[in-house]
Nucleic acid binder design. Sequence first.
DNA 1: TCGCATTTATGACTCAAATCATAAAGGAAT
DNA 2: ATTCCTTTATGATTTGAGTCATAAATGCGA
Lengths: 198, 198
Amino acid sequence: MIATELLEKYGVIQKKFAKTTIIFEEGKLPKYYFQILSGEVKMNNYNDDGREFIQGIFYKDQSFGEPPLFLNQKYPASAVVVEDAEILCVPKESFMKLLNENPAISIKIIENLAQRLYYKSVMAAEISTHEPEHRVLRLIDYAIANFNFKKDANGYLINFTRQQIGDLSGLRVETVIRAIKSLEKKGELKIINRKVYR
Amino acid sequence: MIATELLEKYGVIQKKFAKTTIIFEEGKLPKYYFQILSGEVKMNNYNDDGREFIQGIFYKDQSFGEPPLFLNQKYPASAVVVEDAEILCVPKESFMKLLNENPAISIKIIENLAQRLYYKSVMAAEISTHEPEHRVLRLIDYAIANFNFKKDANGYLINFTRQQIGDLSGLRVETVIRAIKSLEKKGELKIINRKVYR
DNA sequence: TCGCATTTATGACTCAAATCATAAAGGAAT
DNA sequence: ATTCCTTTATGATTTGAGTCATAAATGCGA
């Protein structure tokens, strides 16, 4: 996250996006650096059958879509608004100027990319070598550690739908539902009126 | 890749590692920045059944294992020598000093991490939503674009074993062998005395 | 308050990749 | 030349996640 005041010096534009709006599409070239003021955004892919894979979900103060920006490559996934969002957009050239003139920001970007690479590494190994229950539990634990899920007397409330968990872990909804039920029986998590706690 | 001369100013140590040597293990804390002078290194995970997943394979002039270094986190995977290697090692504190004193290097690191994140994004979507043949082909195409596979009259020689392709794409050897045979029939690639060309 | 879309849920069935078994080819070391 | 290990290969069988069908609960908007 880069301070709003700094972004303002580099021609930031604030835009509003309604739920389900596509911010950018897979295959297109990057034009902006994006940072979320409010709302929720997901990055996703669809395969030929229309099956979705969610690369990540982003919230307030998080940025997304930088890798192709730095590489002058096409986006490998699309960005879609999940909850009405206000987003700060800095034009590419301007953002590169910001980077060059503010070395301290580079370090922050590095930490941010490193964090996302870490997540991808863990999930890649999970998705390719572990059973559904393991994958679901890992994803949940990762989300608790990295998103601001609320904790109450029952534990952390996992603010994902079963479908989202499936799309993030490469499983079908039914499989996620069954895995969660089974994990509840094993005492790994709780289901309290359909909501998952851990 | 950071110039050797610069690394030398920050207390670089050159080490030799024999094939199969473990450079660092999953769960351990990072102590060095690593850059390959010669040889080949893979980063991998094993699940409880001993099934391997290869996060990536690294060659001359490439660095590996930086994300946890920047985050002060444990390694999410191990690094193992595939072919006898000479590696430049810069102690962590010293490397951080290098970064702070050389802003231009930060940009390079950013590009490097972005490139790896790009690969992970593409492969994550592949592994979780596509059939074996698609996964194998994508991995091969990615490898051609990013590793220095040699091109001759038959096309690019894919310098991976079937097992490595499987461990990189989350498939079993037999499945990879069958997928490659099928892709050959479809004319997507060639098999010339057991070697794969594309 | 009614209607409709979304989310959670469950059972039956299918199928593709994993598993298991076996073997041949190739390469490296002695 | 012989041994041993790795890699490629192929057929038969199993299995677990996906698919399909259906439905109830919930919540949102008109």
